[in-house]
């Protein structure tokens, strides 16, 4: 193991390492801690200049309740859910199939189709912006959640295909060969042989895509504009202009907006990291 495990070092080094950990973490998360502190302070603390001291009274409950009762935040959160969840289902479903096709079959053009998906996944959004916006407007889907979902599904299919194809490549081929010898049709092989083995990949990909889409801001701004369809990343701007200079409210709102992917991460940590670090180890 590198660096040398602290257990093998002197007691003094061990103790200082353990003391250093929480200090380093505090410094690392300092900006976030500041916002968390703001979010539980009453309004009065800001007018009286008590910015970084302890809150004069605990107003966390009140502030967070107001986020839900006095603003459009619940609406934005619901929009985010109705954009994110269908996208995850759509992109994962499409890429299970494309990944299967590219991972299992040898045919001419396989590698080029694969490269098309990989390259497409890296292009800057701006090169797609004008035509995609135009297409969405022409389909009558501008400023709808559906318009965003369709685009996200299509774009995420690139990354998901890369992920699924590499995962399927690593599965034992003998299973598929054996099923073929038995005369099982290709569609049944996909459904009954390969799909059950892909469960860990599906889980990892689902959490990753959930986070990516929940956090998307660019397409939310390009393809939607109103409270009816905007997700929370775009809605937070409107929220902040409603509570201009009310830092306790803006802080509480930001924390609410950031929370769902954070919870997803802590609940599904293993899958999340497995997905993110795919390829980091040979």
């Amino acid at each position: 193991m590198f660096p040398t495990p602290v257990e093998r070092r002197s007691a003094a080094i061990q103790a200082s390492y353990k003391a250093l950990l929480p200090i380093a973490l505090m410094m690392w998360l300092l900006p976030l801690l500041m916002v968390a502190l703001f979010s539980i302070k009453p309004d009065a603390d800001f007018t009286q200049g008590n910015l970084w001291g302890l809150p004069s009274s605990f107003a966390g409950f009140e502030n967070y309740t107001r986020v839900f009762t006095d603003s459009a935040m619940p609406r934005y959160l619901i929009n985010s859910i109705f954009i994110t969840v269908p996208t995850v289902i759509g992109a994962v479903a499409l890429s299970c199939m494309t990944g299967f096709a590219l991972g299992v079959y040898r045919f001419k053009g396989n590698i080029w189709i694969f490269f098309m998906f990989v390259a497409g996944n890296f292009v800057p959004f701006q090169i797609l912006m004008v035509p995609v916006r135009d297409l969405t407007v022409n389909m009558g889907l501008y400023d709808t959640r559906m318009g965003l979902v369709l685009f996200h599904v299509a774009f995420q299919t690139g990354f998901c295909t890369l992920f699924m194809r590499n995962f399927i490549r690593a599965l034992p081929r003998e299973l598929i060969e054996a099923a073929r010898v038995e005369g099982v049709s290709e569609i049944r092989i996909f459904w009954y042989v390969v799909l059950p083995l892909m469960r860990p990949a599906i889980a990892a990909l689902s959490v990753l895509i959930f986070t990516f889409i929940w956090n998307d801001y660019f397409w939310a701004v390009v393809l939607t504009q109103g409270v009816e369809s905007q997700p929370v990343t775009a809605g937070i701007t409107a929220f902040n202009s409603q509570f201009r200079a009310a830092y306790h409210m803006m802080s509480a709102g930001s924390i609410i907006a950031a929370l769902p992917p954070v919870m997803m991460f802590f609940l599904m940590q293993k899958h999340f990291i497995a997905g993110l670090t795919l390829g980091a180890v040979k």
């Binding site: 499409l94 890429s95 199939m97 494309t98 299967f100 096709a101 590219l102 299992v104 079959y105 045919f107 396989n110 189709i113 098309m116 998906f117 497409g120 292009v123 090169i127 797609l128 004008v130 035509p131 995609v132 297409l135 369709l150 685009f151 599904v153 299509a154 774009f155 299919t157 690139g158 295909t161 569609i187 996909f190």
Partner: peptide, 19 residues
Amino acid sequence: PWLFLAPGMVFFAIYVVLP
């Protein structure tokens, strides 16, 4: 393979490659 590729490729072509 083409059957499995078709839906993903159609989506990707319309929203990413053509644009």
